[in-house]
Design a protein around this nucleic acid. Structure first.
Lengths: 343, 343
DNA sequence: ATTAAAGGGACGTTTTGAGACCCAAAAGGA
DNA sequence: TCCTTTTGGGTCTCAAAACGTCCCTTTAAT
């Protein structure tokens, strides 16, 4: 019955996009309300004006209220959002557990591949495919700047991206942080190059020394090449990153023993692009580096987090609770079940 | 599950109209294929250009083929049409038996009110309400010329039309035929006046003598008043008529004994605006009169037939099989069940 | 007090849908 | 056979809608 929505796909394929978009707008308003036009537009990657016509329409049909402090869902809007959820889920092949997980973490979508990466390392292939599908669905046609971070997960996923992603698009991969100080095969520069190779597109590199004086840093930023890349990063259309276990990452990133014991004291469980979080999702330490900052992430229209394996469940939950609401999480059953069980 | 389509009504109310329209286009193509753009446009009351954009879209999404001889449904189109039928039915509160009847008679829609008019004469009130709803749904806003015919059914239904029909519209009722020769309360002139009164709108009258020479007829048509009304008739936006039993109507219309026995010989069962049909839907006699002709009916975008009661089942089926495919039939369970049983 | 973010107004540009033609080709009736 | 009708398709124009781009006032938070 409900599963047979193919008629709408047949008779009005373009309506689906519109409906999906309106659904996402409603969802974001539900989570962030009261929220303004501009920040919504950035989150969903729309222009401000288009967002305005959409929201004015939604107001006209009585799904949202528009007040001086921002936009809010009406009673009818909330009902519609609830009605809409299973429909969107069906149309886009979202399983029940996926929408449960996404709702629990308050993010746009969770994609779950079968298995548990901890015991089946080859699952990174599935994760890569899932990421590829997600990118294909969300990235607009035309030019796209994609900021990527490093990590074992990222490097094992990178080779699964397909050249068809670059069809009718012009992808440019840039590294999220200067890569010195980590082993070369998992630093973001390398992942960048791998993704560009897999998709037959372009990439940039960013090499910045650690621990330089702010004077020296300023002159480095003036460097044309470096400055360009930093511009790309702050204007990027999408971000792909992973989430790591705090202790492991602290060690791998070569933090001082002092800092590491501090992290242990404060019960850090998650690491994500240089930030450390405890179980309550509070940020408790930040590795000072040039590149994308946590507060910039809100302004990026599309954010993809790739992290899987039951062992990463705690870390994922710790970070994700405060991740930008437009985030997608690509994970596996091992992590998903563990997160939902502790709910 | 499937019955809960209210989400689409909430999030995109205008989509429903588009979907309904595309459905009707597909349906007409299915029945009339191969069929051309222009004739389709006339049948559905669209402009030729709008029909073109619609059909070009339908071609693009692969629901129809569009060749030199006209348009045809593709395999996918037929599947979609079948999938769509119950959806449209649900959205517009069409019961199973209604869509069965409409499909059997190959008309756009059948509306069935509960009961059997033969034994419950007060049902004409329900029939009138049903007609009123149908008109409200189908008539576009703005000016509408509506040609109406006479008959007992018509006159008993006329008073049920409501003034809200005339809101944002400008209705003009004109009689389908010159009315001399029938008892005054059931001739189309009277029905016209009743409908105009009920809806607080306007009407015209048409009085033409019977059996005049063609010379005299020509000069009559030159008469400004009469000519105007005839113009209205041929350019009307909707037609409302009834269907009668052949024998009864032959008698009421005062046909000669000779003609009546001819009708009996040829097994006439149905009468409709002066035409007589046998059980095989063949036209076997036509009362020569000025006014709307059977072949004009195809060019009228909206056609409503009102006929109910088990006793009229044969007549309804005989006429309806060759009625224009955009027709709506307003009937009751008595007639509907009888028609479908003989199927 | 200052700042950032909220909604909303205004204006010019671009895009799209529709009206109004015309045309050649194919089909069908006389 | 010819001639009319009907077919899809091409093209020009115009108006409405959508959109990009500013700017404004108000409001809440710092």
């Amino acid at each position: 019955m409900l599963n047979n929505l193919s008629w709408i796909e047949n008779i009005a394929p373009d309506f689906l996009k519109v409906i999906r978009q309106r659904y996402e707008i409603l969802q974001q308003i539900s989570w962030l309300s009261p929220v303004g036009r501009r920040s919504l537009a950035i989150k969903l990657g729309l222009s401000e004006r288009s967002m305005r016509t959409e929201t004015e329409y939604l107001k006209q049909v009585g799904l949202i209220d528009i007040g001086r402090r921002g936009m809010t869902l009406t009673e009818k809007g909330e009902q519609t959002l609830e009605q809409l959820a299973p429909v969107i889920a069906k149309v886009y092949n979202v399983s029940q557990i996926e929408s449960d997980l996404a709702a629990h973490l308050q993010i746009a979508r969770a994609v779950i591949v079968p298995g548990n990466t901890d015991v089946q390392p080859h699952l990174s292939k599935s994760l890569g495919d899932a990421l590829n599908d997600a990118l294909k669905l969300l990235l607009p046609l035309g030019r796209n700047i994609i900021t990527v971070f490093g990590g074992v997960t990222m490097s094992s996923v990178a080779s699964q991206l397909s050249p068809t992603l670059n069809r009718h698009r012009d992808l440019l991969f840039v590294p999220g942080r200067g890569g010195l100080g980590e082993s070369v095969e998992i630093q973001s520069n390398t992942v960048c190059q791998m993704m560009a190779n897999s998709t037959h597109s372009h990439y940039r590199t960013l090499y910045l020394p650690e621990n330089v004086s702010s004077e020296a840093m300023k002159s480095l930023i003036k460097d044309e090449n470096i400055g360009d890349v930093l511009d790309f990063i702050s204007n990027s259309d999408a971000v792909i990153h992973s989430i790591g276990d705090a202790q492991i990452m602290a060690k791998r990133r070569g933090l001082s023993l002092e800092t590491r014991s501090m992290l242990t004291d404060k019960k850090a469980v998650a690491e994500c692009f240089g930030y450390f979080f405890n179980q309550q999702s509070q940020m408790i330490y930040k590795i000072p580096r040039i590149g994308l900052q946590l507060e910039d992430l809100n302004r990026i229209p599309r954010v993809f987090a790739v992290a899987a394996g039951q062992s990463k469940a705690l870390a994922i939950e710790a970070y994700m609770k405060h991740a930008p609401s437009q985030s997608w999480l690509i994970t596996d059953e091992g992590a998903a079940n563990s997160i939902l069980k502790g709910k």
